[in-house]
């Protein structure tokens, strides 16, 4: 019974929270550029408007992949709040991205295809680091279960500081923020138009946007797991990290994917690996 209530609350309120986070993000970005910026609820207006647009689809399968992406994102958030297995969560989350990639490659637009290919390279870069994070948590807590990880005595961050840094770094890629916004650009008048989302319009784009909201909430949750006692502190720190991401987004220009791949392998992977080897030697 409690589970069902949790599910309903999560499915209904997580997107709202995600929308507000995105709205504040846009507002803060505007302030950095000494503008006033859009209203905080602007992302919700955007999605409502997109829902009201004419339905135009390139092919019939497109919408299925978009829905798949959304469903897997919701599922991974549910796995998180229901304190299920962390490894399964990571794989379900990967499914969500893969679904979007397949959707983007199902059309013939070169922009969409390039975006999709870059997204695949991104997955290649960040997925090992996320898995190493889960492995690190397992080494500390002795469990892959999110419930046991959250209830673990003491601060996970103290044991996994380098993994945390690597995860924050990887999050920039996952959130598609600058300098790694090259699979779908925020500013659609560059080499790649809108990349991954170029060929999605109206309802489909609205669903993709909602998927982002769920993901934003999930990432806040994943970050706060490092500081689970007390939880509010974890959430505050997670929001702080998100704020740093926004700053980074504003001060960086886009890099190339080659640079990203090299840097992630060298920095992200080795940070996480160092931490895990250290843990391994300690226990």
């Amino acid at each position: 019974m409690i589970n069902i209530i949790t599910i309903i609350i999560t499915v209904l309120f997580a997107p709202l929270a995600g929308a507000v986070i995105t709205g504040v993000d846009r507002r803060i970005t505007a302030r950095f550029q000494s503008r006033i910026g859009p209203p905080v609820l602007q992302p919700i207006y955007d999605v409502l408007k997109l829902l009201g647009k004419e339905r135009v689809a390139v092919n019939a399968m497109q919408i299925i992949y978009v829905i798949g992406s959304l469903v897997f994102a919701i599922l991974s958030l549910l796995l998180f709040v229901l304190r299920s297995d962390y490894l399964i969560l990571v794989f379900v989350l990967a499914f969500s991205t893969v679904s979007l990639i397949v959707g983007a490659t199902s059309v013939r637009s070169p922009y969409s295809k390039i975006g999709a290919q870059r997204e695949i390279i991104q997955i290649l870069a960040y997925e090992p680091v996320i898995i190493l994070m889960v492995v690190g948590m397992y080494l500390v807590t002795g469990s892959f279960n999110i419930g046991s990880i959250a209830e673990h005595e003491g601060c996970l961050f103290a044991q996994l500081p380098l993994v945390f840094v690597a995860f924050c770094y990887v999050l920039t890629i996952k959130l598609r923020k600058s300098p790694f916004d090259y699979s779908t650009s925020h500013h659609g008048h560059q080499e790649l138009i809108k990349g991954l989302t170029t060929e999605f319009s109206g309802l489909q784009l609205a669903l993709i946007e909602i998927t982002h909201w769920y993901e934003a909430v999930l990432f806040i949750g994943m970050l706060s797991l490092f500081f689970a006692h007390p939880l509010w502190l974890g959430i505050l720190i997670a929001l702080g990290v998100y704020f740093c991401e926004i700053i980074l987004d504003n001060v960086c220009a886009r890099t190339t994917w080659q640079w990203m791949l090299r840097f992630t392998v060298v920095l992200g992977f080795s940070l996480a690996m160092t931490n895990i080897i250290w843990l391994y030697l300690k226990y």
């Binding site: 006033i36 602007q42 647009k53 500013h187 659609g188 008048h189 989302t197 170029t198």
Partner: peptide, 21 residues
């Protein structure tokens, strides 16, 4: 640009006809 700040009204220069109004 920041001086006039069209994004106040929710304006985004999307550069993609499929997203534009």
């Amino acid at each position: 640009t920041p001086i006039y700040d069209a994004e106040r009204f929710g304006v985004v220069n999307v550069g993609n006809p499929k997203h534009a109004d």
